[in-house]
Design a protein around this nucleic acid. Sequence first.
DNA 1: GTCTATAATATGATAGAC
DNA 2: GTCTATCATATTATAGAC
Lengths: 231, 231
Amino acid sequence: MSKQIQRPATPAKKPKARSRVPSEATLNRRKRLMETKRSAIMEAALDVFSRYGLHGTSLDQVASQADVSKTNLLYYFASKEDLYINVLRQLMDVWLSPLKSFSVEQDPAEAIGDYVRVKLELSRDHPAESRLFCLEVIQGAPLLLGELQGSLRDIVESKVSVINAWIEAGKLAPVEPHHLIFSLWAMTQHYADFRTQVEAVSGRTLEDPAFFAETLTNLKALVLQGVCPRS
Amino acid sequence: MSKQIQRPATPAKKPKARSRVPSEATLNRRKRLMETKRSAIMEAALDVFSRYGLHGTSLDQVASQADVSKTNLLYYFASKEDLYINVLRQLMDVWLSPLKSFSVEQDPAEAIGDYVRVKLELSRDHPAESRLFCLEVIQGAPLLLGELQGSLRDIVESKVSVINAWIEAGKLAPVEPHHLIFSLWAMTQHYADFRTQVEAVSGRTLEDPAFFAETLTNLKALVLQGVCPRS
DNA sequence: GTCTATAATATGATAGAC
DNA sequence: GTCTATCATATTATAGAC
């Protein structure tokens, strides 16, 4: 019954050792390849999730866009939700950082102008992140609510103080800081989330450098000067 | 084989007539009831679709929220997509109207201020419409693209002319009208679509009359005056 | 017009060979 | 690690009684 007896009694020492005990270099290479694949899957997932949402997206869609099989995808991520959560978590890093930069020492007009530029660049270069964040918040942010009420709120409050300090110093018109921040977010993210509408109406997108420049100039002018002519 | 011969030869004239031939009043009542039910289903559908999207929503969800059975729902609407399309179509009527109002004769500051107010009222009173429109556009507006490129674009172009006329008359600072319109949309719709975030960060919503008033004042000030102090 | 099955399908997830 | 079945389930939609 057993076929072990057929095997030569002398154990092969040298030739087989390589395949049984991979070198450290091989292990590292494998690890790198796995990381690359994980990233590819997450990138594809971000793109599809950001259009159709968690439920509107099938694993087959993500898998085919990432050029892996569905089963293989499920080797890298325990479940669809697990994949979604990983994508969201990575997204938040990109999302929370730009606001951190502005501080009391800066010139308010310059700080706000820079912020508009950075956020508009995000809309141009990371539209999927913008859309996915939007989708998640529209649903009531089931997975991000904690972070919105925690980290985000904290950052916003600290910037509210900065803006209030500017106002008290007479460097800024008395606008309630929360609304200013909401408006900056809204105006800039609009060009990513409503890209289809912007393109349908104006025929242009942020990928067109001239349109990007024009948009940036106009948003800055709007926020800083408003539409009423200065005397 | 035929049972007709079993029937009494004398046809019942008066007593049975009522149940066989419903009066016109009865028919109207039925029609009204059906219309009411259709509306209830569409209202429920709008609410659920606007959170979870077409694919994220199940007919069971809609049916239970509308207090009808799923089978009954499918008596009123041929399919889930049919229901979705009906909801979208009705939505667009609400959505396209406010922009139509402003014209060259008006004072620009007043016209723009009024528009902000009306749009903010929409965000407060019809948040589901705002969310569903957002979801649809994020996906690339598969069902609305025609309308965006057609009716919407036409209306926008006519308003672009109005704004340009104001600028030429020196009544408005030289802002590119498309960007002004996009910004007005973005700033006002933000309070509906990102309500969760607004509430998480500020602890308030448009349903609070004080917050609504504060928001309106600040958005108007922002668009009309900007944040740089006037000398 | 409303109900109770039930068909038909899509899709998330697992088992087990290699 | 990656593949080929395959299971399990959710959900759209229909058939047919009442």
